[in-house]
C-alpha cells in the first residue's frame, strides 16, 4: 500500500490536523511503510469470523433517573481558552468562507 500526497492531505483534512509540507511527505512515507507491513492481515481467512469491538459482552447499564450534583458551570469553564456569560466562546462559524468544507 503506497499513499500519495493527496491521500495524506485527505486524511489530515478528515482528522482536522494542519500539517507542514515536510510532515505530509514524512507521514506519506511512514504510513505507506506501516500499512505495507499490515497487509499480512489480508491473507487471514476471516470470512466466517465475527468482529470483536470489545472483549466484554455488550450490555446496557441503567440507573435511576434522579437529580445528582454534576460539574458546575464555573468548573466546566475553568479550563476554557475563552468564555463569556457562562458559555465557551469561539470564532464565528457562519459567514466564514474558509470553513474547510
Amino acid at each position: 500500500m503506497s499513499l500519495t500526497t493527496a491521500d495524506v492531505e485527505h486524511i489530515a483534512h478528515l482528522a482536522r490536523l494542519e500539517l507542514t509540507t515536510d510532515e505530509i511527505e514524512q507521514y506519506r512515507r511512514q504510513l505507506s511503510d506501516i500499512l505495507a507491513h499490515f497487509d499480512v492481515l489480508a491473507q487471514v481467512d476471516t470470512s466466517a469470523i465475527a468482529p470483536t469491538a470489545s472483549v466484554l459482552s455488550l450490555r446496557s447499564v441503567m440507573r435511576r433517573d434522579e437529580v445528582r450534583p454534576g460539574l458546575s458551570t464555573e468548573d466546566a469553564l475553568a479550563n476554557a481558552p475563552d468564555s463569556a456569560d457562562g458559555f465557551f466562546r469561539v470564532p464565528a462559524i457562519f459567514g466564514d468562507d474558509a470553513n474547510g468544507g
Binding site: A15, R16, L17, E18, L19, V90, P91, A92, I93, D96, A98, N99, G100
Partner: peptide, 13 residues
C-alpha cells in the same frame, strides 16, 4: 486561529 476551522486544525497541528 481566526476562524472556527483554523481553531481546530492549527490547534491540533
Amino acid at each position: 486561529a481566526e476562524t472556527m476551522w483554523q481553531g481546530y486544525t492549527m490547534t491540533r497541528g
